[in-house]
Design a protein around this nucleic acid. Structure first.
Length: 478
RNA sequence: UCCUGAAUAGCUCAGCCGGUUAGAGCAUCUGACUGUUAAUCAGAGGGUCGUUGGUUCGAGCCCAACUUCGGGAGCCA
């Protein structure tokens, strides 16, 4: 099963047993009586210190041990003579797997900007910051599956390629095998997609929800967790063209059950990270507070662990859209005309409004419900007043909307009416409408953008830094 | 896509009112020192200033376009 990793070795008792280390050099320090090599293999944020005696190895060999080079070291695990670490490895044999020319290797032992690291996304996982982020990302993904498994949800694999263009969740990436230089035409001159691979137009999915509902109407509780694609020309710190989405869908869940699940779920995965990623979170918290030292007092943020614990330990604030509008109308920024966009019943809340509610008024996560039907999707269940729908958005400080969900319209006639209203051809989603024809049931679900969750938990500020290889307009290098 | 700011050494930045040979810190290399902790001290090498065009006797600095990046907004998860 491979050699012991540094994470395990650091926990062992230093009894001079022979061990093998494999990893990448972070720093090398040479002194009169000893040569110190800090080695990291990504299993933990911590490095292990390996020590050689001067003259033990040739100068030529030592010259190739530079930051970024990869080594295999065998030696004895002993108690460290220096302070700063409990154990270290007394080197007996040293082999260089791969060198890293210090003049050419871009990661040197100094602080680099996140913007620069984005340009070298193939190497940035080797930094402390990205190592921590990627390990936390893994733990959160694992917690997602563990949570749903414990709650008896089934993991449903919804298609990545879809022929449905009715979801209305955004611009789509086209999938085709047609020769772009020689497009087949119909007699009318339009592109003839009958000759395309699927015999029709196809795209990358923008959401697995509609297929998720099909699963819920058979298995009762399902969730999806997969990549999602939006061809929007969005250039922000919160959007990606390719991102991972978690979408549970539950039969016999009403809006309140949906909210309970969303809150419980988010708290569970954050708690999992708090319990299982202590070292990485502590590193990121420290990194953030170092950054904060350069900021004026009033712009400093609360420490990361404190922020996460607060979210886990306190109930989310729940209120209706109508109540939220009332709060905004009575708010100071509205009275002083500080809002850029006008406030009034019927508006789609802009991020300044959401930020006011979450960050200024309630100072905690907020769940907004019962939005006007006009600003929400066709599949959301109409309230009895006919004006609002059973929608819910979970808003997080600094992130904005992290979850969007609703109770779904389960009445065939009402759903069909909405389909016509928003201009969807019912023929294209006949299979979706069939669920309301055959054994319809009240059901609910929501979607959570995984990267936004990772953004919140790591305290990072740009979504491009919480996915290994971000995809966004004009960027698909790696 | 819109608004706004930026682009100078490997990285992070400074560069005065347009004027001789473009500076610093970190990194790298060399030396000294040291059971060191992203060590410390000294020295060295390294850039034609994003691209194109323009204004000018003269442009890193002024103007225009383009490209890329940051921040904000919209769309959303």
């Amino acid at each position: 099963m491979g050699p012991l990793q540094i994470k395990e070795l650091l926990q062992q008792t230093p009894d001079a047993k022979s061990v093998t280390l494999k990893g990448w050099v972070r720093t090398k320090r040479e002194s009169k009586n000893a040569i110190f090599i800090a080695l990291n293999d990504g299993s933990t944020i911590h490095n292990i210190q390996a020590v050689a005696a001067p003259g033990q190895f040739s100068a030529e060999l030592l010259l190739t041990v530079t930051t970024g080079s990869c080594l295999k070291i065998t030696g004895q695990l002993v108690e460290s003579q220096g302070s700063g670490q409990a154990v270290e490895v007394k080197i007996e044999d040293l082999h260089v797997y791969g060198t890293a020319d210090p003049e050419a290797y871009p990661l040197q032992p100094k602080r680099h900007s996140l913007e620069f690291l984005r340009e070298i996304a193939h190497l940035r996982p080797r930094t402390n910051t990205f190592g921590a982020i990627l390990r936390i990302r893994h733990s959160l993904a694992f917690a997602v599956h563990q949570y749903f498994n414990e709650k008896r949800f089934f993991y449903l694999h919804t298609p990545i390629i879809t022929a449905s263009d009715a979801e209305g969740a955004g611009e789509m990436f086209r999938v085709t095998t047609l020769d772009l230089d020689k497009l087949p035409r119909t007699e009318e001159g339009a592109i003839n997609f009958k000759e395309d691979f699927f015999g029709r137009e196809a795209n990358l999915t923008v959401s697995g929800q509609l297929e998720g509902e099909l699963g819920a109407m058979a298995l009762s509780k399902i969730y999806t967790f997969g990549p999602t694609f939006r061809a929007e020309n969005s250039n922000t710190t919160r959007h990606l063209a390719e991102f991972w989405m978690i979408e549970p869908e539950m039969a016999f869940f009403e809006l309140e059950d949906n909210m309970d699940l969303a809150e419980d779920f988010v708290k569970y995965v954050i708690r999992y990270a708090l319990e299982n990623c202590k070292d990485d979170l502590a590193f990121l918290e420290n990194r953030l507070s170092e950054e904060d030292k350069n900021k004026p007092q009033n712009e400093r943020s609360i420490p990361l662990l404190e922020k996460l614990s607060f979210v886990v330990d306190n109930p989310f604030e729940r209120l209706t859209y109508t109540e939220a509008i009332d709060i905004l109308l009575k708010s100071k920024p509205h009275k002083e005309k500080k809002f850029q966009y006008p406030v009034g019943w019927g508006i789609d809340l802009s991020s300044e409004h959401e930020r006011y509610l979450v960050e200024k008024h309630f100072k905690k996560p907020v769940i907004l419900t019962n939005y006007p039907r006009e600003i929400k999707s066709f599949y959301m269940k109409l309230d009895d007043d006919g004006k609002t729908v059973r929608a819910m958005d979970v808003l997080f400080p600094g992130i904005g909307e992290i979850i969007g969900g609703s109770q779904r319209e389960d009445n065939y006639e009402k759903l069909l009416e909405r389909v016509h209203e928003v201009g969807i051809d019912p023929e294209t989603i006949w299979w979706y409408l069939d669920t309301r024809k055959f054994g319809t049931a009240p059901h609910s679900g929501f979607g959570l953008g995984f990267e936004r969750l990772v953004l919140f938990v790591t305290g990072m500020s740009n979504i491009r830094d919480v996915i290994p290889f971000p995809r966004y307009p004009k960027s698909a290098e790696f």
